[in-house]
């Protein structure tokens, strides 16, 4: 496909992190500098993708970071043209009470398990107090007075559901800690992968299918052309029962599943993937909204494509102008 025949949105979505040859209406200049995007960034007039481009670039480009700081300073003066109004004093109280709550929650979460063990128990089983306080001979059922016996029965009856609740909450707590640990591991893994991408990483956008025209998708591919990450944003709250989508690539007309992208309540999700072959060997990429059987790509229709088709055919011999780094 020639440069001219490609759709502007496809060209626009292509850029190179830290690269040197980019020509698109994204206004990324020679050396990958983002001068033309900076005024729009400072005024908040860029779309999310363009903002991401600037954010990533200024992390390593001091020149553009300085230009951005200059424009931000200028724009930052505009609010001083407003007449002054005073907020309600309640807002300050609410703010600091919220901060206090957040600090408490953070302190609780950071307490080591050993320290938590030493804390007083919030709930005491009814049976524990009478047993300790009453001499063994009187506590024995044979010597128990009628009232005590009734109390013991009530205490026992109450202790069972309480015990069950405590065990259940303990199990739930353990599961929750497990989930948190698992999620932290995933985040660490994603961060490690992103760090590995480094200079030479490339980002490609996925075009939305008819199912979700507002959806956005992006593939970040490492310099090795094999390790990458797919990120999707449905740009809407998740309403469909499906909360995960399958990313597939097409090779020799066959659909090959690659990874599953789980989407949160806000419709955003991302997942790492690894290819057997360089990205350019594949024909296209699809994120499927419905389960699709692995196999012949002709079985797949545009109706089940949520996002996909990078530049139509990323690996065909005709796509030489689609300059993969």
């Amino acid at each position: 496909m020639s440069e001219q025949s490609r759709r502007p949105s496809e060209i626009r979505r292509r850029y190179r992190i830290g690269g040197s040859t980019v020509a698109s209406d994204l206004d990324v200049g020679p050396g990958g500098h983002v001068d033309e995007l900076i005024p729009g960034y400072a005024l908040g007039a860029l779309d999310q993708f363009e903002r991401d481009v600037v954010d990533r670039h200024v992390r390593f480009c001091e020149r553009c970071a300085d230009l951005l700081a200059e424009d931000m300073r200028t724009v930052g003066l505009i609010p001083f043209t407003m007449p002054r109004a005073t907020p309600s004093p309640d807002i300050k109280i609410a703010l600091f009470s919220r901060i206090e709550q957040a600090q408490r929650a953070a302190a609780d979460a950071s307490l080591p398990t050993q320290a938590r063990r030493g804390l007083p128990r919030a709930v005491t089983l009814p049976a524990s107090r009478p047993v300790a306080a009453v001499p063994a001979d009187i506590a024995h059922p044979r010597f128990a007075r009628r009232g005590d016996s009734r109390f013991s029965w009530v205490a026992s009856a109450l202790s069972v559901p309480l015990l069950v609740a405590l065990v259940a909450s303990g199990v739930w707590g353990m599961q929750l800690r497990g989930q948190v640990a698992q999620q932290s591991a995933t985040v660490d893994q994603l961060q490690a992968q992103l760090a590995n991408f480094g200079a030479g990483a490339t980002s490609y956008s996925l075009s939305p299918g008819t199912l979700a025209p507002q959806a956005e998708g992006e593939i970040i591919l490492g310099a090795d052309q094999k390790n990458g990450m797919v990120r999707i944003d449905l740009n809407s709250k998740q309403t469909s029962p499906a909360t995960s989508y399958e990313m597939m690539v097409v090779k020799d007309g066959k659909l090959v599943p690659l990874t599953e992208v789980k989407v949160d309540d806000h419709g955003v999700g991302q997942a790492p993937f690894q290819l057997d072959q360089p990205f350019s060997n594949y024909e296209s990429v699809h994120v499927k909204a419905k389960p699709v059987a692995t196999g012949d790509a002709s079985n797949s229709t545009s109706d089940d494509t949520l996002l996909g088709n990078i530049a139509g055919s990323i690996g065909s011999s005709n796509s030489g102008s689609y300059a993969l780094p």
Binding site: P79, F80, P83, K92
Partner: peptide, 19 residues
């Protein structure tokens, strides 16, 4: 340190709110 934030709040809450 929330006391530090409080000083910042007192300095700028009016500008931020007006904006």
């Amino acid at each position: 340190d929330a006391r530090a934030l409080e000083v910042l709040y007192d300095r700028y809450s009016s500008v931020v709110f007006s904006f």
